[in-house]
Computed example of a mutant assay.
Amino acid sequence: MFTVLSASAVAQEATVQGLIIGRDGPKMYVQTGDSPRQIVILQDSTRALQKGGFFSGKKDLGVAALVPGLEVKVDGSFDPDHELVAKKVEFSKSSLKTARQIDAGLNPVNAKVASQGDQLMSQRRDLDAAGNRIDEQGRRIDEHGNLIAQNGQAITATNGRIGQLDTYDEKGSITINFRNGSAVVAKKDKDALEDFVKNASSMQGYMIQVQGYASKTGNAAMNQRLSSERAGNVLTIIQQSGAVPLTRILAPAAMGTTNQVADNHSRSGQAQNRRVVVTVMVNKGITGGPDAAPATAAAPAPAPAGQE
């Protein structure tokens, strides 16, 4: 739904309601009832307000909370290019929870889903060309179809998020490891992280992605909380470095115990799984494709076994 509230010779004040379908730094794309894509310009002064209950009022979470899949109402004014410069963006707590679940779920699997879709198409062509393999190919199609169906609702809700992410190249990442049960970033890791984001900030069209993880020791609720706190603490360091504006940071994702990179039966393996991964992604359309120079940073070594 798109509603124009008032207009003047200087600026046209407006309110837009719809679904966030993409982010590109300070530009946010919103699908409304009248337009498949309304460009919204975010600023560091833009307020991102989560609406609470009857007594809790509104909470300003910052523009990093504006992720694809979020239902929003945007108040602002149109610039000469008919792009809406946002003064404030409002959204409900339940919509934010859903959007973050979609964001956390799709970040690690969007490439897999796209790959599975390609495999499914290939398998269907094989069925037409090779009738003697119908039974085997049919079984594989069912397996891929079930997995794609499980992600179908999230893909539909974001309405183009995968296509948006496909416009980015991953240019480098840094991994921060943590002690058992802790979300405190060590000083050496803090220094390395600040160097990494300063290097990333020199690129055109970049976005910073932060994902927190936990090992599978302890209960699920504690691990989810730890992954969230670790991601949040790393995000705070990035913001305090002053090298990266808020509009270039995606909302931190608490990934819990997903994507374990080592065996949890050993202390060294658990130490590798207690981590935050910070990734810099660069827009292909701005940089001209995958030939742009990558950001590099040495990943800190896992905590020694004696420091568990």
Rank of each mutant, 00 (worst) to 15 (best):
Thr3Gln: 10
Val4Glu: 07
Val4Gln: 08
Val10Ala: 11
Thr15Asn: 06
Gly18Lys: 01
Gly18Trp: 00
Asp24Gln: 14
Lys27Leu: 09
Lys27Ala: 07
Met28Cys: 08
Val30Lys: 02
Ser35Glu: 10
Val40His: 03
Val40Leu: 06
Ile41His: 03
Leu49Ile: 10
Gln50Thr: 14
Gly53Met: 07
Ser56Asp: 15
Lys58Gly: 12
Asp60Pro: 14
Asp60Ile: 08
Leu61Phe: 14
Val63Pro: 05
Leu66Arg: 00
Pro68Met: 09
Leu70Asp: 04
Glu71Thr: 11
Asp75Ser: 13
Phe78Gln: 09
Asp79Gly: 00
His82Gln: 13
Glu83Trp: 12
Glu83Cys: 07
Ala86Asn: 01
Ala86Gln: 06
Ala86Ser: 05
Lys88Thr: 14
Lys88Met: 09
Glu90Cys: 09
Phe91Glu: 08
Ser92Phe: 02
Ser94Ile: 05
Leu96Gln: 03
Thr98Gly: 12
Ile102Thr: 01
Ala111Pro: 10
Val113Ser: 13
Gln116Ala: 09
Gln119Thr: 08
Leu120Ile: 09
Met121Cys: 07
Gln123Thr: 08
Leu127Trp: 04
Gly131Phe: 08
Asp135Val: 14
Arg139Phe: 06
Arg140Ile: 12
Ile141Met: 15
His144Val: 06
Asn146Met: 11
Ile148Ala: 03
Gly152Tyr: 01
Gly152Trp: 01
Thr156Tyr: 07
Ala157Pro: 01
Ala157Glu: 08
Gly160Tyr: 06
Leu165Trp: 10
Lys171Leu: 13
Ser173Asp: 09
Ile174Leu: 09
Ile176Leu: 13
Phe178Trp: 02
Phe178Tyr: 10
Gly181Glu: 11
Ala183Gln: 02
Val185Asp: 04
Asn199Leu: 10
Ser201Gln: 02
Met203Pro: 05
Met203Asp: 14
Gln211Met: 07
Ala214Arg: 05
Ala214Pro: 15
Lys216Met: 08
Thr217Met: 06
Asn219Ile: 00
Met222Ala: 14
Gln224Met: 10
Gly232Arg: 02
Ile237Leu: 08
Val244Ile: 14
Thr247Pro: 01
Thr247Arg: 02
Leu250Gly: 00
Ala251Glu: 06
Ala253Leu: 05
Met255Lys: 00
Met255Ala: 04
Thr258Leu: 04
Ser266Phe: 15
Ser266Gln: 03
Ala271Lys: 05
Asn273Gly: 11
Val280Asp: 09
Met281Glu: 05
Val282Ile: 13
Asn283Cys: 05
Gly285Lys: 15
Ile286Asn: 00
Ile286Phe: 11
Pro290Glu: 14
Asp291Cys: 13
Ala293Met: 14
Ala293Ile: 12
Ala297Thr: 10
Ala298Ser: 12
Ala299Val: 12
